[in-house]
Amino acid sequence: MRMFKILPFIKRDLKTFTSYPVSMIFSSLSVFLTLFIFYFLSKAITVGDSILAYAPDYFSFVIIGIAFSSAVSTGLNTISASVRTEQSRGTFEMLLSGRITTVELLAGFLTFDTIFEIVRIIVILTLAAFFFGLKLNLSHCWVSAVFLIFTFLSFLSFGIISAGVIIITKRGDPVSFFINQANILFSGVYFPYENLPSWLRPISYLFPTTYALKGIRMNLLMGAPIGEVYRELLILVGLTLVMLPLSIAFFQAALNRSRRWGTLSTY
């Protein structure tokens, strides 16, 4: 992958993002609102043992869930949203006429949003720590960073598949939306997955975020070192290694199929 093919996408997306200042201001303010909502919600509820196993209080529990699950949404939605936008802008065919590989194209679509999301997570955690009393244990925080990378990559695989589906069927958003909502329900974003009825709990094990949030919470809030969370990490790494190449191959096949059908620019 050649970085000089990716940089123009980052510049383009940054320029486009900053050219909508009102949207920029409101999306920044929304971070504060989210923190306020969950801060006061955490004051109103009493937490049980299932939460205390991961975090000292509900606010810490839920903020980690929200901050990191948005990275999951980025991995899941960015590629398909980019394909859709490029098609409706009329630029998709022009991008494909460039001397650029499929991996470079996908990375180009993704990089700005990923950087933005990482900055967002850091801002949320910093604000929560400074203004709302979130106590983070940063002694092994690199473990959380590794968790974040592999959670993102494993969900990115689903996102790339979703984009491939969009190229072929011109519809894919319901798939991403469903996965997103199911992810929130089953993987413990707002409440521990252990609170689900026992017959639903096995579904939680199918979501990479379940392992990721468990590992990240234990690491960032309880100071757990790699030795205590390596099983969760190995599952994520395994899933990524299998799914990512498969999803890229699927996307390439979808592009080729669409070239044959003559439907690249239709949406």
Binding site: F4, K5, P8, R12, R89, T91, G98
Partner: peptide, 25 residues
Amino acid sequence: NGEERSFYWRLTLMENLRFFMALFL
């Protein structure tokens, strides 16, 4: 392609051409 939509309208002409140059060459 005769499609004036095939550019990024929030960018300047120069920024557009630089973007596509980096892609093409």
